[in-house]
Computed example of a mutant assay.
Amino acid sequence: MLKKTVIRSVWLVIGLVSLLLGVLGVFLPLLPTTPFVLLSAFCFSKSSTRMHSWLLNHRIFGQLITDWEAHGVIRTKIKVIATSSMLLLVSYPLLFIAFPIWLKAIVVISIVSVLLFIWSRPSKPSDNQVKDPLKL
């Protein structure tokens, strides 16, 4: 019983830290929001039904998580917002601040990797995922 409580507590802490990083990712261009929020949802599903439900019903993050959990989908609107914000927030420092070229390369590789992941995900559920399970 104690082991189960400790494991749930660890999942809860990881979920809270991940959610904090996701919220920071809204403001920091190299810190992606979506993966951290999705990780939070996963951790909360293992630790706290109350926190998981809160996140699923959240005004901003709820639909994103529901789409991902149900269909593995990142909607086009979210992809465009993520792409725009990353490019906007990173372009000025890369172009106008004198960082070493190797540091700029790391930033560019990071941004491109995240964007490749985001844009490689489906934008809407496939036809067979949307079918009503009651109509068999």
Rank of each mutant, 00 (worst) to 15 (best):
S110M: 15
T76M: 12
I65A: 00
L95E: 05
I118L: 15
I118D: 07
R75S: 13
V90N: 11
V107K: 07
F99G: 04
F117G: 07
S85V: 11
R59S: 13
W102N: 11
L88I: 15
L103C: 05
M86Y: 00
G72S: 13
I60Y: 13
T66G: 07
L87S: 04
K104D: 10
K77R: 12
F96K: 09
A105P: 00
F99T: 02
I118T: 06
S91D: 00
S120R: 11
H58I: 02
S120L: 11
I78G: 04
I81Q: 03
W68T: 03
S85Q: 04
T66L: 11
I109E: 04
G72H: 02
P93A: 03
I118Y: 15
I106M: 15
L116R: 12
I74D: 13
F99A: 10
V90R: 01
A82K: 04
T66M: 14
G72W: 01
L95H: 09
A82D: 08
W102G: 05
A82H: 08
V80G: 01
S91P: 01
L95V: 00
T83N: 03
H71T: 06
H71I: 08
S120P: 06
S85F: 13
H71R: 04
I74K: 01
I101P: 06
L87M: 14
V80L: 10
I118G: 08
V73R: 13
F99Y: 14
I118F: 15
R75N: 11
L94E: 01
P93G: 01
A70C: 07
T66Y: 13
R59P: 11
I65G: 01
A105V: 08
G62T: 05
S85T: 12
T76E: 12
F96T: 05
K77N: 10
W102V: 14
W102S: 15
V90E: 04
K104P: 10
S120Y: 12
I78A: 15
N57A: 08
V107W: 02
Y92Q: 08
T66F: 08
I106G: 07
L95Q: 10
F117H: 10
I101G: 09
S120G: 14
V112A: 13
I106K: 09
M86I: 02
W102I: 12
S91I: 07
S113W: 13
L94V: 07
R75G: 12
E69Y: 02
N57F: 04
A82I: 07
L87R: 05
V108W: 00
Y92P: 08
V108T: 08
L94G: 04
D67C: 06
F117S: 07
I101H: 12
S120Q: 10
T83H: 02
N57G: 08
Q63S: 15
N57P: 05
A70W: 03
H58D: 13
E69Q: 11
K77S: 15
L116G: 09
